[in-house]
Nucleic acid binder design. Structure first.
Lengths: 155, 155
DNA sequence: GCTCGACCTCGAGCGCACTTGAACTTACAG
DNA sequence: CTGTAAGTTCAAGTGCGCTCGAGGTCGAGC
């Protein structure tokens, strides 16, 4: 049991490819010491940090927001379980909101299946104000922005 | 009440920018007649078609899959409410699956909050086989691929 | 000492859903 | 007839989360 991991070992054990780990590093999400020959050597605590990143990503956070979260960890010491726990807890409302939105969509869909209307005037499935438009390109609600964000942006 | 819509009118009424409508057309999702001066003129039924595309997109389908779905509409006549209803109904399982996955994630999160472990060995929050990796780059589960897809791809 | 797999950096490319910009034309109101 | 808002095409750019390739170096076993 070595004290440090090579990038390949961390990759295998975290499920993130070496290229992905280097990318995370380029964004400041993780860090590594270097061997005499300039190769990355990871502390074992990086395993948990990468696990956190992966899970946060599955929850729907962008890497930028994950970086923000990681920045709130105490400096100078390895984070404790309590630290990780605090961060994980903060995802809960986000998940709840995303689930709620999909459920709304599903229920609206149910109430529309009978009519097949998709009417811009009447059907709740439609989003006439296109609130999401203010937030930029790409699929939005499904990628982490909440309707709440859209409303605030539309302010 | 004109029989046809300009691209600007369709954009305002559908919530999709003109550039987006041209993009949809480039993918074969919508079509338009042309004025004497080569400007697009949309039949009113396009409103419903665009509404369908937007909603399907919110549900999490890629534009490619939406195109596939639209291809099953009868040719030679304007689709009826029944046609749209049939397509909408097909989203239901997809939505259910996406909701279920987020709920699983939330429940796993709950069971982990106490420990803060995020352990690759023990914690259900982790996804050790990284099933999603087979499907290519980018956030996956949250963008429309289902875990089922991943399992089939890994098979 | 040599080999060979794993590592390094840097820039480019990808997939998706669009948007933007340049350079130009059309439609309609006054 | 003229001004201008709205339309046209085409190529390129954006944002996110990576991956890939080229060209070179490192490290461990024989």
């Amino acid at each position: 049991m070595e004290p440090h991991l090579t990038i390949g070992e961390l990759a295998r054990r975290s499920g993130v490819a070496p290229s992905g780990l280097r990318y995370y590093e380029s964004l400041g999400l993780i860090a590594a010491e270097r061997s005499a020959g300039n190769q990355r050597r990871y502390a074992r605590s990086m395993l948990r940090r990468v696990a956190f990143i992966r899970t946060a990503s599955r929850v729907g956070l962008t890497l930028e927001r994950i970086a923000d979260a990681l920045a709130t960890l105490p400096e100078g010491r390895t984070p404790t379980k309590k630290d990780w726990s605090r961060l994980s807890r903060s995802w809960r409302p986000l998940l709840d909101e995303r689930i709620a939105e999909l459920e709304r969509l599903r229920d609206d869909l149910d109430s529309c299946i009978g009519c097949g209307c998709l009417s811009l005037q009447r059907c709740r499935l439609q989003n006439p104000d296109d609130r999401a438009a203010a937030l930029g390109p790409g699929p939005r609600y499904l990628e982490g922005d909440s309707p709440g964000d859209a409303e605030r942006a539309a302010g």
